[in-house]
Design a protein around this nucleic acid. Structure first.
Length: 115
DNA sequence: TGATTGACTATGA
DNA sequence: TTCATAGCCAATC
């Protein structure tokens, strides 16, 4: 298992941004990738989430795809775990998709202001 | 070492 | 509008 320093930095950034997602809000892989300056590496954000299980403080359940679809719910152990966690935060999820996704959407580029 | 896969997104037909 | 394909980059086989 050899991780490049650059990769760790990228993953760390992904986790940092994910941890900044406010309660009851969600964002997309692409938004995070864009915030990190890697808009075309959205898949890497998803891959980073794959290792998010080691980071209890990373609310990976608040990260969905660009249309609010819970594409990664299967990685939470239970098929409904992700949906349930979102529901607990007041986010309605219907048919594995966030209801009123745009209302709950939290864009790090806008909220964090690329600071 | 090379090929395949993946928690995505954008673009073209 | 819906379906198919390309691009992205790291990890796994």
């Amino acid at each position: 298992m050899k991780y490049s320093a650059k990769t760790e930095n990228f993953f760390d950034k992904v986790y940092a941004v994910t941890k900044r997602i406010p309660y009851g809000r969600v964002t997309s892989y692409g938004a995070i990738a864009k915030y990190l300056g890697a808009a075309r590496s959205s898949r890497m954000v998803g891959w980073a989430m794959n290792g998010a299980g080691k980071h209890p403080d990373v609310p990976a359940h608040r990260v969905v795809n660009r249309v609010g679809l819970l594409t990664g719910k299967m990685h939470f152990g239970s098929s409904n775990a992700m949906q349930q966690m979102l529901a607990e935060e007041g986010i309605q999820v219907e048919d594995d998709q966030v209801v009123d996704f745009k209302k709950h959407f939290w864009d790090p580029v806008l909220e964090l202001g690329m600071d």
